[in-house]
Design a protein around this nucleic acid. Structure first.
Length: 289
DNA sequence: GGAAGGACCTGGAGGC
DNA sequence: TGCCTCCAGGTCCTTC
């Protein structure tokens, strides 16, 4: 599933293959892929055609290709892929949007099996987080991701203390920290030795710092491995899978021995999805009356 | 206003 | 072989 490391791998691919190129035409093959572009598919295509794409940028799981004072914003959802390939290559089964370029070179395709991903065109606005360059207006509300220089560790800790929720839910809250999804939340919590239901208000400064360090470590290692691919649903722009899945310690390891203590990894249902943890290294918090 | 739960969506896997 | 059910999860919307 595309989380921050996977999206960053895609961004780097787009930087090589798409930036500086002029879009000749846009073909929307499935309207759901541009459902968040409210003026519709025809407007989406017309806005992009003729534009020269700048260096792609990313915040959390969102990436965007700026052109002028606007950008093509992409979210890959669960199964979205941005692929470059020969312009005359046959269409993929779940091809949703295709961009052809004026240089007649490789085209850019948005392929998405489960259609949770989307593309849209939106204006760039000044970054409320203080970062350089503009950000698409529709994602101005999300937090910086933990690799951005503007991410404030102390402000993150203070926000956790104000919340009345569990630490995993907080990690998945893109208004607190962006880019963390279910896989890396579980991995970071395993590294930090924290149970996902531990109340954020009861975390110490040291625990918050350890958690952030764990998030950064696991994502950095995943990025070096090209991302996490459980199946063909995540690939880079050239269609290649990452191999960080082999390094996961908790996620997807149900009943396998914990790499630290040997206790069987536990799978629980959390927020209508799976949550994996070691019951010994990550003890469930005690109820406070 | 904040927290929590459900809907959306598709296809692979497994059971019968 | 075919049908049915379950599962995967990011984001938005609704409910409490």
């Amino acid at each position: 599933m595309p989380e921050l490391p996977e999206v960053e791998v895609v961004r780097r691919g787009l930087a090589r293959w798409a930036s500086g190129r002029t879009v000749a035409s846009v073909e929307v093959l499935h309207p759901r892929a541009v459902r968040r572009h409210l003026p519709g598919a025809a407007d989406f295509a017309a806005r992009i055609a003729g534009s020269t794409l700048d260096e792609p940028r990313r915040r959390g799981k969102y990436l965007w290709l700026p052109f002028g004072d606007a950008a093509v914003l992409a979210h890959l959802g669960m199964s979205g892929q941005l692929l470059v390939g020969e312009a005359d290559a046959p269409p993929q089964r779940h091809l949703r949007v295709r961009l052809a370029f004026a240089d007649d070179g490789l085209d850019l395709r948005f392929v998405d099996q489960r259609t949770f991903g989307h593309l849209m065109v939106c204006p760039l606005v000044p970054d409320p987080r203080g970062g350089e360059g503009g950000v698409p207006d529709v994602i101005a509300h999300i937090a910086a991701d933990p690799f951005e220089p503007v991410f404030d560790d102390e402000a993150f800790f203070k926000a956790l203390k104000r919340k009345q929720t569990g630490v995993k839910r907080a990690l998945l809250d893109q208004s607190l920290i962006s880019g963390v999804g279910n896989i890396y939340a579980d991995e970071a919590l395993w590294r930090a030795g924290l149970h996902g239901e531990r109340p954020t208000a009861r975390l110490t400064g040291a625990q918050s710092a350890l958690l952030l360090r764990s998030v950064r470590e696991v994502m950095d290692e995943a990025l070096r491995a090209g991302g996490t691919s459980f199946d063909s649903l995540y690939v880079n722009v050239n269609g290649e899978s990452g191999y960080f899945e082999r390094s996961l310690n908790a996620y997807g390891r149900r009943d396998e021995p914990c790499a630290r203590c040997g206790t069987a990894i536990l799978r629980e249902v959390f927020m209508n999805r799976s949550s994996y943890s070691c019951p010994r290294c990550q003890p469930r918090p005690r109820l406070v009356r």
